[in-house]
């Protein structure tokens, strides 16, 4: 099949099989920043924003989300212009192997957009669709708290 998608703000046509999962289509089309860890909607490494909502891209048929807005981690910030959340993850030591990081940062981005000042419990629940085996989550939670502070500070300033 062929379909059009709006990926990181740009219109993109992709070829895909009719029973293909979105994570596979994205990766086949060069969006390798979307990681594939389990294909069962459990690990969250493949998380993207679909119309601004965080979802497991392995739990979606590509065909079903044509013409939708898809945001990958690179749509949030890249190496040359990183997002505050990405910098907070780096600063806090929340990135060890980093395979899960794009997913966690996507989940964090969605959380802070909706709720810029979350409680610790709200943070924990917002990342309940992401598994990390390296950090034990401690530094990830630190990073999110810190990103929340920085984002609020930025709002006050601007």
């Amino acid at each position: 099949m062929k379909g059009t998608f709006i990926i990181n703000g740009q219109s993109k046509t992709m070829d895909f099989n009719s029973d293909e999962r979105l994570v596979i289509s994205l990766r086949n089309n060069g969006y390798t920043e979307v990681k594939n860890g389990c294909l069962e909607g459990e690990c969250g490494a493949c998380m993207i924003l679909l119309d601004d909502m965080p979802v497991h891209s392995c739990q979606i048929f590509t065909a079903s989300v044509q013409n939708k807005n898809i945001t990958t981690i690179k749509g949030i910030g890249d190496l040359h212009l990183p997002h505050i959340i990405q910098e907070s993850f780096v600063e806090a030591g929340a990135v060890q192997c980093g395979f899960c990081s794009p997913g966690f940062i996507i989940a964090t981005y969605a959380l802070l957009k909706k709720n810029p000042n979350p409680t610790e419990n709200e943070i924990k629940q917002a990342i309940d669709g992401n598994l990390c085996r390296c950090t034990g989550y401690v530094k990830i939670i630190d990073a999110i708290k810190n990103a929340s502070k920085l984002i609020q500070k930025e709002r006050v300033h601007s």
């Binding site: 890249d78 190496l79 990405q86 990135v95």
Partner: peptide, 8 residues
């Protein structure tokens, strides 16, 4: 870390 956090 930053290259990992940005998916590159």
């Amino acid at each position: 870390a930053l290259s990992l956090a940005t998916g590159s």
